[in-house]
């Protein structure tokens, strides 16, 4: 996505979120106002709000990526979320509503008449919320970085500030409106491109084979790998080195490597294929195919000819 549109688009969504939150703002006076909006939220609005929670960064981006990588088995995750909502309705939401408690710790205390259980339940709620929020904030930061190149923490920071301000000011009423608004926004933002993608796919003759192909770079690309990497070369790789690799001095005359079926010795190659490693060995290695790391270059037969 073009970054000139990305910043105004993100800003627009943030401003709209704050405005919708302000629209729902009635200053919360009672506990009932704050937690359940005095039970004035209709089922449709509430359903939209809960579904807005469901369509989050983790569930949408995460499931799409998992299905792409691992196949349709990963569709069990959304099924699990939905079945989880049903179990939640049966064994938590309905008894909670009948008991008249507002929060899970309230409910635990009401049922078990124990202050310690209440504290434990509170700790669990905070802990689960923490585990849930962490990937969401990470997703927000990642998305904003991909869209605009902003620093990693900014997306999470914006989300945290906007949500905290909305909840603190308006309580459940504001946040329900915000979530319902975001549900319709996200649904539109997902369905419209999906519709056009399906149309484009159909217009292309509904090709299926492209999904079977292994992924390939169609043009030249710099790839940075921050972990150990084994390179297996099926064809001999010609490497020309001028300078010093791993403390060995290499002179100018270029050499072609003799045909070796596999030049990989299985040794873990050090990272940073393109960028020079941090203690710069001043090695200018030019490669035909996958960019070699200094150690792979040394293991290639030709460069062993030390002067």
């Amino acid at each position: 996505m073009n970054s000139t549109f990305a910043v105004p688009a993100v800003a627009l969504v943030v401003v709209a979120t704050v405005l919708v939150g302000a629209f729902g703002l009635r200053i919360s006076r009672t506990t009932s106002d704050f937690y359940v909006a005095s039970r004035t939220v209709g089922p449709r609005l509430n359903a939209a709000a809960i579904s807005g929670e469901y369509l989050s960064a983790a569930s949408f981006l995460g499931i799409a990526g998992l299905v792409l990588v691992q196949g349709p088995d990963m569709l069990w995750y959304p099924v699990g979320y939905t079945a989880g909502y049903l179990v939640l309705l049966l064994f938590v939401a309905a008894p909670l509503r009948r008991s008249g408690a507002y929060t899970l710790p309230d409910f635990a205390e009401a049922r078990l008449a124990s202050q310690a259980v209440r504290r434990l339940a509170g700790a669990f709620v905070v802990g689960v919320g923490w585990l849930y929020l962490l990937p969401q904030l990470q997703g927000a930061g990642l998305t904003l970085t991909v869209l605009t190149g902003a620093p990693d923490s900014l997306g999470g920071l914006i989300v945290a500030v906007v949500v905290t301000a909305t909840v603190a000011a308006g309580g459940m009423r504001s946040i329900t409106f915000v979530q319902a608004f975001q549900y319709w926004l996200k649904l539109t933002a997902l369905l419209v491109p999906a519709l056009f993608l399906v149309l484009a796919w159909q217009a292309d003759g509904a090709p299926r084979h492209v999904f079977e192909e292994p992924p390939a770079f169609r043009d030249q690309r710099a790839v940075r790998v921050d972990t150990t990497l084994d390179l297996k070369l099926d064809r001999p790789l010609t490497v020309t080195v001028t300078g010093t690799v791993d403390g060995h001095r290499h002179d100018r005359p270029p050499c072609a490597s003799p045909p070796a079926p596999t030049a990989s010795n299985g040794a873990p190659a050090s990272p940073s294929p393109r960028a020079p490693p941090s203690p710069p060995p001043s090695a200018a290695a030019t490669a035909a195919c996958p960019p070699p790391s200094p150690r792979a270059a040394r293991s290639a037969p030709c460069t062993r000819r030390t002067a």
Binding site: P72, L75, W76, V79, T82, L86, L89
Partner: peptide, 18 residues
């Protein structure tokens, strides 16, 4: 079948149950 059931079909019975 897996796509049809897990992606689409299973949600209707869940909604009806709820």
């Amino acid at each position: 079948l897996e796509w049809a059931v897990l992606g689409f079909g299973l949600y209707a019975p869940l909604v009806l149950l709820a």
